[in-house]
C-alpha cells in the first residue's frame, strides 16, 4: 500500500488534465499524526498534494453524495461497496464516478497506538508497508501493522474493490471464510441483562456530537430522525435513554447498508466502539439472507427487496 501515492498523483493529474473528471477526491497529508485531510482537488497542478497511507481511514464516499459533476475518487474495498450502495440508492449516478480502486491491507487503529504510548506524545507515524514507524518522545519504534490494525480491518472480508474503472496495485488476499466480530460473538453467550448492561455502559458516555452519524457515507438523510420534532422520536439532551435510542436507531438505519468501513468508530472523539451495533446487523444480514451490502451494483439493498421464502419463523 506504500507505493500508491505516486500512482494516485499520476492518475489524478491525467484525469483532471484530460477533463475526464471535474474533481478528484483523495487525501492530503494531515497536520497531526495518523489523521489525513480528505481533499477535493480540481486543479491538476494540485494533484501532487495527494497521498495515500494506512491512515486514510475516513470514508471518501461521504463526499460524493449529491454532487452534480463528474468525480474521480479513490476507493478501497469498503469505500467501493459504499459507492455501489449510493448508486443503488440514487445518491449519485455511476456515470458520474471514475473510481480508482485501491486494494487495501487495512488501516492503522489510531487509538490503539495512542493507548500504547499513553502520556508520551506521538510526533509522527510513517507507513512502511507491513510495518510502521512511530516517533514518540525521543525514540522511534517500528511496529507491526498487523498488531495495530483497526478492528474492522482485522475482520475485513473484501480488501479489494469490486467496482472500479482502473485499479492501482496488486490484489490483497481475502480471508476464506467470514469472520464474526469478537464482541458480537461474545454477546451471543451473554444473558439479556448482561447485554443490556454492556449496551448501557458502552454507549452512555456519548456526547451526542453525531460524529459517528456524519462520518458515515450512508447517513445522508436531509433531516435526520434526531432533528425531527413532530413527532420527536428522540430527545436531544444528554438523557441516557435518548442517547441509547439514538444509537439504536442509527444502527438500525444502517441494516444491510453498512460496509463496516469503521469511519464511525474512527470519528468518535471519545472512542466509543460504535460498530458494536452495526456489526450485529451485518452478521445477521449475512447469516439470515446471505447478504453483504454493495457487492453487486445490479442488486437492490437488503431492505429494498424480498424473497417469498424469507425467514418467517418468528411470525405466529
Amino acid at each position: 500500500m506504500t507505493g500508491y501515492t505516486e500512482k494516485i498523483r499520476e492518475a489524478a493529474k491525467r484525469l483532471l488534465t484530460e477533463k475526464k473528471v471535474d474533481c478528484f477526491i483523495g487525501f492530503r497529508k494531515g497536520s497531526v499524526p495518523m489523521v489525513n485531510y480528505p481533499v477535493i482537488v480540481s486543479d491538476p497542478a494540485k494533484a501532487d498534494e495527494l497521498i495515500w497511507d494506512a491512515n486514510c481511514a475516513m470514508n471518501l464516499a461521504n463526499y460524493v453524495i449529491g454532487r452534480k459533476d463528474k468525480v474521480g475518487i479513490l476507493a478501497t474495498g469498503c469505500v467501493a461497496r459504499n459507492l455501489v450502495t449510493l448508486v443503488q440508492e440514487n445518491q449519485i449516478k455511476r456515470e458520474q464516478l471514475y473510481i480508482i480502486g485501491l486494494p487495501c491491507s487495512g488501516m492503522i487503529d489510531k487509538s490503539q497506538v495512542i493507548d500504547k504510548y499513553g502520556d508520551v506524545e506521538i510526533v509522527s507515524v510513517i507507513d512502511k508497508g507491513d510495518t510502521f514507524a512511530v516517533e514518540a518522545g525521543d525514540k522511534t519504534d517500528v511496529l507491526k501493522k498487523a498488531d495495530f490494525l483497526s478492528r474492522n480491518c482485522k475482520i475485513c472480508a473484501h480488501h479489494n474493490p469490486i467496482e472500479y474503472d482502473e485499479i492501482i496495485g496488486d490484489k490483497v488476499a481475502d480471508p476464506e471464510t467470514y469472520i464474526k466480530p469478537e464482541d458480537v460473538k461474545k454477546s451471543e453467550s451473554m444473558s439479556d441483562a448482561e447485554r443490556w448492561e454492556f449496551f448501557e455502559k458502552t454507549f452512555s458516555p456519548c456526547i451526542r456530537c453525531y460524529a459517528c452519524r456524519n462520518a458515515c457515507p450512508m447517513c445522508y438523510c436531509p433531516t435526520c430522525f434526531v432533528d425531527e420534532s413532530r413527532p420527536q422520536w428522540v430527545g436531544k439532551s444528554s438523557d441516557e435513554t435518548d442517547t441509547l435510542t439514538f444509537h439504536f436507531l442509527r444502527a438500525l438505519h444502517l441494516a444491510g447498508r453498512c460496509t463496516d468501513c469503521g469511519a464511525c468508530e474512527r470519528a468518535c472523539p471519545i472512542d466509543i466502539p460504535v460498530r458494536y451495533l452495526t456489526s450485529r446487523l451485518n452478521a445477521d444480514a449475512k447469516e439470515i439472507y446471505g447478504f453483504e451490502s454493495g457487492l453487486d451494483p445490479k442488486m437492490r439493498p437488503l431492505l429494498d427487496h424480498y424473497k417469498l421464502d424469507d425467514l418467517n419463523d418468528f411470525f405466529k
Binding site: D192, E197, L252, L277, R280, L303, D304, Y306, D310, F314
Partner: peptide, 19 residues
Amino acid sequence: FYARRRFTMLKALLKHVGI
C-alpha cells in the same frame, strides 16, 4: 414482504441490546 425483512433486523438488534 418488505416489513418482514425490516422486523427481522429490528428483532435481531433488540435482542442484541438485551431487550
